[in-house]
Amino acid sequence: MKQLTVVSGKGGTGKTTLSGSFAYLARDAVILDADVDASNLHLLFPVQVETKMPYSGGKKAFVDEARCTGCGICQELCRFEAIALDGGVARVNPFSCEGCNACAVFCPETAIHMEPVQAGWVQRGNVSGMPLVDGELFPGEETSGGLVATVRKEGQGIAQQHKYGKILIDGAPGTGCPTTSSITYTDFVVIVTEPSQSGLHDLERIVRTVDHFAIPKGVVINKYDLEEGTSARIEQYCATEGIPLMGKVPFDPEVVRAIREARPVVTQPSPAAHAIRDLWEEVQRRVF
């Protein structure tokens, strides 16, 4: 089983546009949306949801106000400023509570206990015969990295059970926990960038992140013709770093039209669709 993740560092460079087209072209893969803060891949396909499972991220502290004497030990212990005395009783701010349990362990009245809290959903569905797993995090929740890990575990289970040889993962922007959680132990990472100062700056950071986990990688420049000078600098950077440039996709109004029509861009001919098909050939040669 081979796993491929599409990431970008900078948001909005075209991760989901590429992932959606890869999914359409792959025909026999398990598709995972690991951008759980902003899961959009399902919007490109008519998805039939098969199961929806609650995701419990971690635990949070709850105070039994009848037993709380307002001694304030919990407030002193909490490193996350998540618990404070209010009118003589301890109150927990659930957005700040990281579930460490310190307050519960040291409450002299045993007035605090921890409870698992649902932080989102994991959904399993079907797109034109292929399994799709995605996650949805509740607004403002933490542990998005944990949700990504859960989505991937579910996807690997399906791949093993139904003998799929490919897992395609649409990753998260940034370099933090959801991103690293979407690339660990994968076989290849496709990094999508765009020709802007921000794109290049973020490309350098995501390359270092992928290198930290020692995963093979390649770069795609999306909308390369919007600013050809910067595109040339990105190509130069890739050459210097020895990173394979796997493809260049032109700016094409057809891409936005396809998203608005809720379909992958490769479903109709256009300059971008042509470039993405070539790119998919290159991905197959290198990865699968």
Binding site: D37, F95, E141, A172, P173, G176, P178
Partner: peptide
């Protein structure tokens, strides 16, 4: 602020 809707965003918006 960062993209997304989870903990770093909450910290930036609070």
């Amino acid at each position: 602020s960062p993209p997304g809707a989870s903990c770093p965003v909450v910290e930036a918006v609070t």
